[in-house]
Amino acid sequence: HSHMSHTQVIELERKFSHQKYLSAPERAHLAKNLKLTETQVKIWFQNRRYKTKRKQLSSEL
């Protein structure tokens, strides 16, 4: 499990705020920019979407 830097997370968050789903080319581009693997980016987005979904569910209770 590799640790992401604060800067990388900020960039991922910024991208996520604009779009929740990335196409393969977008993911490849973002990964390259942030010096991450595409898998890391993919998993981060999956986890981030899951967290957002959970938060929405709990706020509706």
Rank of each mutant, 00 (worst) to 15 (best):
W44V: 01
Q40H: 02
S23E: 04
E11S: 06
V41K: 01
T52P: 13
L36V: 03
K15W: 14
S23A: 05
R14W: 06
Y21N: 03
I43F: 07
S2R: 11
T52V: 12
T52I: 08
K55G: 12
K42G: 05
S5G: 04
K35A: 11
Y50V: 10
R27P: 00
T37V: 02
H18R: 10
H3F: 10
A31P: 00
V9I: 13
H6N: 08
K42T: 06
R54K: 14
A31C: 03
K53W: 06
L22P: 06
H3E: 10
T39H: 12
Q8F: 03
L22E: 00
Q19E: 04
R54H: 13
Q56N: 13
L22M: 04
E13N: 05
Q8N: 02
H6R: 12
H3V: 08
H18A: 08
S2A: 11
H3K: 12
V41L: 03
S5E: 04
E11R: 05
K51G: 10
L30A: 01
R14D: 04
M4T: 03
R48K: 13
L36G: 00
Q8H: 03
A24H: 08
W44K: 00
A31W: 01
L22Y: 01
T37W: 02
L12C: 05
L30I: 06
A24Y: 14
E38W: 04
T37R: 02
S59A: 12
E38V: 10
S59Q: 12
P25H: 13
L22N: 00
Q56E: 13
F45V: 00
W44A: 01
W44M: 03
N47A: 07
L12I: 02
R54S: 12
T37E: 04
R54E: 11
A24R: 12
R27H: 03
E26T: 04
K15L: 11
S23R: 04
E26F: 01
H18Y: 11
S2P: 11
L36P: 00
H29G: 06
E38R: 04
R49A: 03
N47S: 07
S58Y: 06
S5T: 14
R27F: 08
E38K: 04
K42Y: 08
E38D: 07
A28V: 06
A24G: 11
I43C: 11
E13D: 03
Q40I: 05
P25C: 15
L57A: 13
K42W: 08
E11T: 05
L34V: 03
N47T: 09
H1R: 08
N47R: 14
H29K: 14
K53C: 15
T52Y: 14
Q56F: 08
K35M: 12
K35W: 04
K35L: 10
Q40C: 09
K51T: 08
T39S: 08
R49F: 05
H18I: 11
R14L: 08
F16K: 01
H1N: 10
P25G: 15
T37G: 01
V41Q: 00
T39M: 13
H18K: 13
K35G: 15
H3C: 15
Y21I: 04
K53E: 08
S58E: 14
L36S: 01
K35C: 14
A28Q: 10
T37P: 03
K55D: 13
R54A: 08
E26G: 02
F16S: 02
H29Y: 09
L12E: 02
Q40V: 05
T39R: 13
P25A: 15
S2K: 14
T52K: 08
Q46V: 06
A31N: 00
K15V: 15
Y21L: 03
N33W: 14
K35H: 09
E38S: 05
L34R: 00
Y21D: 03
K32D: 06
L57T: 10
R49S: 02
N47D: 07
K32C: 07
P25S: 15
S59H: 07
E26H: 03
H18W: 05
N47Q: 13
R54Y: 08
V9D: 03
S23V: 01
H1Y: 10
L61F: 06
T39C: 15
L12W: 02
E60L: 15
V41E: 01
S59T: 12
S23P: 04
Q8E: 02
K51Y: 11
T39L: 14
E38Q: 06
Q46Y: 09
H6S: 09
H18S: 11
R27E: 05
H3D: 10
R49Q: 04
